[in-house]
Nucleic acid binder design. Structure first.
Length: 448
RNA sequence: GACCCUAUCGUCUAGCGGUUAGGACACCGCCCUUUCACGGCGGCGGCACGGGUUCGAGUCCCGUUAGGGUCGCCA
């Protein structure tokens, strides 16, 4: 039987990074096993659900490249969907839940209490077979000893999570429930519910949680908790996906960066680690840099331009060829697109802000005649291209009896405002002789 | 309070009774070099603690400690 797995988020208006990884692991397993990946929206709590909140989830999954075989195609519960097990919004499955409630009532496995309907929970410990954790024997806690039964229908008639989750997994033919370990304890309730519904529970695989870098629980408000921020801050989805694969699962063989197709081939449930993992942003950044370096020129250009516009630079004022040439000098240099406004901004403005410490060090009276001599040489240079520019720098330095670096540093600072940046020879060529000389003059004026 | 899960460098991990405990990120040197980044070389750094079992334990068992999770008319 082909596996059927699902990602069943509640539309709260954002997609948690942990939820994204849960979706990823479900997706990976489905793709690995040739199964079906289903997206189901758990919108039973009407008060906090909106179409926009659902769109956040859909867009998040799309951004990551996690396509679902069954599920909604839009955030509209009444809108189109794909698959034969719909509706895929719990808010549209009221009658299904109602039938199941009536069945439990008829069998005496549920009863009314204070306007709610409660489920008659098993008193004996329940064995939870788990593909990741192993067999877990769950006993009742002291509070549950006092009253093991739990509410499955609220007094307003709305069925609650534990119940709808089980009913939907049953009705949708879910074979493997892959979810966060925070649900492990609750699984006893779910298994009892499956039994009461005369059904075999699916196989469970509880995956470890993602913690903050300090080891605390990652909650909504924590930095990096929201998937959306990664796109905004210049991360590539393929880098994030790769990183997420490495959190709680290992390809073995000292592999780090690896194509998704290979991850799919190697991925399996029993190899998932049992302990929580801390989110290490530095490693994500490194991976992002690795992927960014390999990007096609076109995609690099598009994402870079977007990042620069986001940073307030007016690219439209410059010829497209100029923008492309400028951005090409940045490829392989930055690890995040969000670094670009600071890194490449000098290409798109004439107001250079010098790094104060560097200015003090480089814009000295001693450097004035050197830069002046270089300026004169560059002014006569034709064609104004990287190789001859480099040769000029070296020649002037030699005449001056100094290392090339002595000229490079103040020149770079004059043109970029920074001590680090793209290849100086290339950047000067792209800036063009007029702009380059003007920046040199501006810097020269400060060297008194 | 009860119940459940977990424990290898700072972090992510390899290890599945016999290893000089391996790799990656980060960090620190050196090399390369027009800066930075990349790349190359090297360094720092770990089996939480205590008992067992065994000829032999990072690996198996128990306990302690620590971290995480759950016990809702949230999901």
């Amino acid at each position: 039987m082909k596996p059927r797995v699902r990602f069943a988020p509640s539309p709260t208006g954002f997609l948690h990074i942990g939820g994204a990884r849960t979706a990823l692991f479900n997706w990976l397993y489905a793709r690995h096993a040739g199964g079906t990946f289903i997206l189901r929206i758990e919108d039973t709590d009407a008060a906090r659900n909106t179409q926009a909140a659902v769109e956040v989830i859909l867009n998040g999954l799309r951004w990551l490249g996690l396509d679902w075989d069954e599920g909604p195609l839009s955030g509209d519960p009444a809108g189109p969907s794909r698959g034969d097990y719909g509706p895929y919004f719990q808010s549209r499955r009221r009658d299904i839940y109602q039938r199941r409630i009536e069945a439990l009532l008829a069998k005496g496995l549920a009863y009314e209490a204070d306007g709610t309907i409660k489920f008659k929970m098993d008193r004996a410990p329940i064995l939870i077979p788990d593909l990741v954790v192993g067999d877990v024997r769950r006993e009742l806690t002291d509070r549950e000893q006092a009253d093991p039964d739990f509410i499955i229908v609220r007094s307003d008639g709305q069925p609650v999570f534990h119940f709808v989750n089980v009913v939907d997994d049953l009705e949708m033919g879910i074979t493997h429930v892959i979810r966060g370990e925070d649900h492990l304890s609750n699984t006893a309730k779910h298994i009892a519910l499956f039994r009461a519904l005369d059904a075999d529970p699916p196989q469970y695989a509880h995956i470890p949680l993602i913690l903050n870098s300090d080891g605390t629980k990652m909650s909504k408000r924590d930095q990096g908790a929201s998937l959306m921020t990664y796109g905004e801050e210049g991360y590539l989805p393929e880098a994030l996906v790769n990183y997420l694969c490495l959190l709680g699962w290992s390809p073995k063989g000292n592999r780090e960066k690896m194509p998704l197709t290979e991850v799919i081939a190697a991925f399996d449930l029993p190899q998932i680690l049992r302990h929580n993992a801390r989110f290490d942003l530095a490693k994500l950044v490194w991976l992002n840099g690795e992927y960014l370096r390999e990007l096609s020129d076109e995609r690099f250009y598009e994402l870079s331009a977007e990042a620069l516009r986001r940073g307030g630079l007016e690219l439209a004022r410059y010829p497209d060829a100029y923008v492309r040439a400028a951005l090409e000098t940045c490829k392989g240099k930055v690890k995040l697109f969000s670094e670009l406004p600071a890194y490449a901004g000098f290409y798109f403005t004439d107001e250079i802000k010098y790094d104060p410490a560097a200015a003090e060090k480089e814009f000295t009276p001693e450097n004035r005649p050197r830069v002046d001599k270089l300026r004169a040489a560059l002014a006569k240079l034709e064609p104004f291209e990287p190789d001859p520019i480099g040769a000029t720098l070296k020649a002037v330095a030699q005449e001056l009896g100094v290392k090339t670096g002595v000229l490079v540093h103040p020149t770079r600072l004059a043109c970029c405002g920074n001590t680090a940046g793209p290849s100086l020879y290339h950047l000067l060529a792209i800036l063009g002789k007029d702009r380059a000389l003007a920046r040199l003059d501006q810097a020269l004026a400060r060297m008194v």
